[in-house]
Design a protein around this nucleic acid. Structure first.
Lengths: 186, 186
DNA sequence: ACGGTTTATGCAACTAGTTGCACAAGGTGA
DNA sequence: TCACCTTGTGCAACTAGTTGCATAAACCGT
């Protein structure tokens, strides 16, 4: 149950409309908690119904009109409660590792190209993180907020670094395999 | 749609009953694709209905009786197809990073203890992986299967190594923060 | 002033995963 | 011999996330 809290955090950082939130989820926030616009709108509705956020006054907030939300005290309290409570880590699922394991049984056909594609994606993501690092975290700032946010970004950078390294290694290993065995017949 | 393929892989490695699969998902397979026993039973039913696996002949496979499954040629073919097809990486979600970001806004109360708990969990997991590495991958083997499986294990080891390092750093950073600011009042 | 694109909000149906419980068989100790 | 525990299978209801589509206003060129 983290999406509402992700939204509360985002709204506390800056009151926004659904679409603005969607964009921010595509960028910074989505790097560790992604959500589609439908999820976001639905959740905004719930949060408003629960009295945790409210729509900022606007003319006629009908369809096609921007509607911005801000966090109410009850929302901040709920976020603080959630943040302080300890939670068990949810199990991760990684389809790529699963596929590698499957490839050990049914053959590696098609795998190399996809490993390369993943490598490119992670390289691009890493570059983006490093750009954010350079742009948003110049040396010499250290408010509590900056430090915590930088810590999160650093996790992103380190994770992408790990993946690019691992994928390079995987590619080298897969390339060195005996030329594609067709997975002994069923 | 990876669970059926995770099960096919597991069954190809060794035909098993639902409960045996559940146990294996708690161990090795679950490290990158977890599933509960209910998911597994449901999926076994579907896979059987689709003709991808079949129950091994047993006396009376009623309730309370073990029922083992093996993969049929159609199942192997489907797994091979899935493995070879490229897939977009699913977005990852990490509640801990989200909480850290929330903590930047509403305060770090309670966070340190939980970071420590996560650190312990990851240390334990890392130790377990290293044990598997020692036990199941003695030097000098290199069938294609061994290499691929080792690659997957290596990803696990590297990931846990990353997390333990990052968490230690996060703990040091959080400890160095000005004594818990109560998140300027709403 | 009309047709197309972009911006913005949202519903409905679906898929995947989780939680809570039920039930049956077999073994184990009192 | 019967109460209880473990093993093994499974249903039902729920929660979370995804996909596909609908709608409406605003902006923009021709």
């Amino acid at each position: 149950m983290s999406l509402p809290h992700a939204i509360l955090t985002a709204l506390l950082e800056k009151p926004s409309s659904g679409l603005e939130l969607t964009r921010r989820f595509d960028r910074s926030i989505g790097y560790f908690w992604s959500a589609t616009h439908q999820q976001i709108y639905r959740e905004l509705g719930k949060l408003e119904a629960d009295g945790l956020i409210r729509a900022l006054p606007a003319e006629q907030p009908t369809r096609g009109q921007k509607k911005s939300y801000e966090v109410l005290p009850a929302g901040r309290a709920e976020l603080a409660r959630w943040t302080a409570a300890s939670q068990d880590p949810k199990p991760h699922r990684d389809a790529l590792l699963l596929r590698l394991r499957a490839a050990a049984v049914v053959g590696t056909a098609g795998l190399e190209a996809d490993l390369r594609r993943h490598l490119e994606l992670h390289e691009r993501q890493l570059a983006e993180y490093q750009e954010i690092d350079r742009r948003d975290f110049p040396p010499g700032r250290d408010t509590t907020e900056d430090r915590l946010r930088h810590l999160v970004l650093q996790a992103g950078i380190d994770l992408e670094t790990f993946w690019t390294q691992w994928l390079r290694r995987a590619l080298a290993d897969v390339a060195a395999l005996p030329d594609d065995e067709p997975a002994r017949p069923a």
